[in-house]
Structure formats: C-alpha cells, structure tokens
C-alpha cells in the first residue's frame, strides 16, 4: 500500500493516449522541419536516399528487436553478431573465390551462409535463455563479448576484405535498386511492413505481447511461452544475417569495429517508437519512426555546422531519455 502512494489522477484517457501514439511521429516531423530550415539540401534525393539506406541495417535489426522486447526479452549481442557473421561471410566468399572463381553462385552461397549463421546465432541465444533458463541480459552480454572477440580473432586484429572483383560484383546489392529506390531501402521497408503485420495481426504477435505482459497468464492460456520466446531470438538472429547481406556490399569489409553499438541503437529505436522496455506492448511502425529519428539527428548535425557532429551521441541520448519519460507517464496513468 505504501508503494502506490501515487494518486491516480484521471484525465480523459482517450486524449492522453492519442498523444502517446502520435508522439514519435510529431518528433519526426519536427526533425524534418528543422532539417529543412537549416539546409536546403536536406530534402534532396541524394540526402534522403543516403539517410534511409544507412538506417536500413539498424532498422532491419530493430524490427526483430521489437519482437524480442515485446515478449519481455532483450538482446545485447546483435552488433557483435553482425560483425561476426559479416566476417564469416567474407572469409567464406574469399575462400570460395579461390576454388569457384568470381561468380554469382559464390555470392548466393555467401548470402545463404550469412542468413544461416545469423539464424543459428539467434537460436543459440534463445536456447540458452529458454531451455537453460539464464537471464537474457546475461546470455547476450556473454555472446556479445564472444562474437566481438571472434571477429577480432578472425581478422587478426585488422580488417577482413572481400576480393576486389568480388566486391564489384556484389556492390549493386547495396548501391543498386529499381525506380531510383535502392535495395536496402526496399528491404527495410518490406521487413518493417511484414513485421508490422505479424505484430498486429497474427497469433505470434499477440502471443509476444501476452508473454511480455504477464508470462503466467500466457502460460495458463496455453501459449507455448518457451517456443514463442525462442522464436523471437531466432527471428532476430535471422534478421541480423539479412542486415549483413545488405551491409557487406557497402564497404566490402568487416573488422572488430563493425556493428559497434548497433545493439544500443536498435534498442533505443524500439523504445523511442513506443514499445515498452518491460515488454507487453510493441509496435513495429514506431520502431521504424525511432530508427529514422536517430539517423536524422546524426544527418542534421552533419549537414549543419550549428552543433558539432561529435555531440550526436549526446543528443540521441537526450531523445532516448525523453522517450522513456513519456513512456513512464503512460504506465502510471492506469
């Protein structure tokens, strides 16, 4: 009783909720307006394409992260996992080039490998969390260190690079596109759209929210809690693999600093988008907005000499904290 000394003040609930729903969108629009007023090139085709394409990696991962967090979990390993999978992919492709020559088949094998490796890495996280029963935070903190160290070891402390000709052949996957829209943007869009549908309109999405909201209720309602949990981590791993497929052709290399802090950006995007960190409620479109907000902040700082781009992290941090403050006022109003 002493705990809930807070008084429930009741305002019309509808109006308040609405603000929560549109909050991230309003923030995004404000950012766009700021960008437009500071630099006329902000809305140029080149800049927008650049921003969106760079957001795609984090964005694809963040969609998967939305499911993990909604189901009451967390995954800190995605950044290092991406680096490790990228390294593995590059090494294998280089090896295969020696025996099979330069060709699309090598790329296809590399892509398949990347997806499978991501899936397995996610599965390992998931099994340790669900079957062995270790806390998600601990498991993924552990695998985060393991993958980071493995990529450093694979690259021998330096950089793993795709052979030059191979790189040329693979390049279009990042830089090419149709109707002037590049592939990473299309991939991000498709993943987000599917994610939104799965979250809102399928039993899997509902089950994630139920588990995150109250695991016991979910279990008593015959939801296979462990299976759904495992599926969220595996899905996230697979999406990390997919993001790597888009990432490798961009620079054609991977090193120990690849994917650094991606996990934090992905988690931040999810939270800014309105998904509850404690689980129970998630929305994929919010995550997309969150990703865009984070990358626009960086972009605007780069385009203007108003504030030093070195302060990017500080401003992102402020935005993340603000988003959580907003979330908290939501949870106390019931």
């Amino acid at each position: 009783m002493t705990m809930s000394s807070a008084k429930t003040t009741e305002k019309p609930r509808g109006a308040k909720l609405d603000l929560k729903v549109i909050g991230p969108i309003v923030a995004l629009i404000v950012l766009i307006l700021i960008g437009m007023s500071l630099n006329p090139n902000f809305l140029s085709y080149a800049n927008i394409t650049n921003v969106l394409a760079r957001s795609a990696f984090i964005g694809i991962i963040a969609v998967g992260m939305t499911f993990v967090i909604t189901a009451g979990g967390l995954d800190l390993s995605v950044g290092s996992m991406a680096a490790f999978v990228a390294g593995l992919m590059i090494l294998t492709m280089n090896l295969l080039t020696d025996s099979m020559g330069i060709g699309v088949d090598v790329i296809l094998i590399g892509i398949a490998l990347s997806l499978v490796a991501g899936l397995i890495a996610g599965l390992v996280n998931g099994l340790l969390i669900t079957k062995v029963g270790i806390e998600a935070f601990i498991v993924t903190l552990g695998t985060m260190g393991i993958y980071r160290s493995l990529i450093t070891w694979l690259a021998d402390g330096g950089t793993l690079s795709l052979g030059f000709e191979m790189r040329e052949l693979y390049r279009p996957v990042y830089y090419g596109g149709i109707f002037g829209v590049t592939w990473p943007i299309i991939a991000f869009f498709v993943v987000a759209l599917l994610g939104e549908i799965v979250m809102r309109h399928t039993a899997f999405g509902r089950h994630c929210a139920a588990i995150g909201s109250n695991e016991k209720v979910a279990r008593y309602s015959a939801v296979s809690v462990l299976k759904v949990r495992l599926a969220t981590y595996t899905l996230l791993g697979l999406l990390v693999g997919f993001a790597v497929v888009m990432y490798v052709p961009r620079l054609g290399s991977a090193s120990s600093s690849t994917g650094l802090l991606w996990e934090l950006e992905a988690i931040a995007a999810v939270i800014i988008g309105g998904t509850l960190l404690k689980g129970g409620f998630g929305r994929v479109w919010g995550t997309v907005v969150g990703v865009l907000i984070l990358s626009l902040i960086g972009n605007i700082l780069n385009l203007t000499d108003f504030v030093s781009p070195y302060l990017n992290g500080a401003i992102q941090g402020v935005v993340i904290i603000l988003a959580v403050v907003l979330q908290r006022s939501r949870s106390t109003d019931r």
Partner: peptide, 20 residues
C-alpha cells in the same frame, strides 16, 4: 496473476487461448 492480462483490452484477453 494467472487469469487475465490487466493491461490489455477485453478482446485480446477473450481470444488469447484460441487465437488460431
């Protein structure tokens, strides 16, 4: 504790065991 999701609506609660 085990019966209903208090933070969700009636609809989500009602159909949870038989969503399929």
């Amino acid at each position: 504790g085990a019966g209903l999701l208090l933070e969700k609506g009636l609809r989500e609660n009602l159909t949870l065991p038989y969503l399929e």
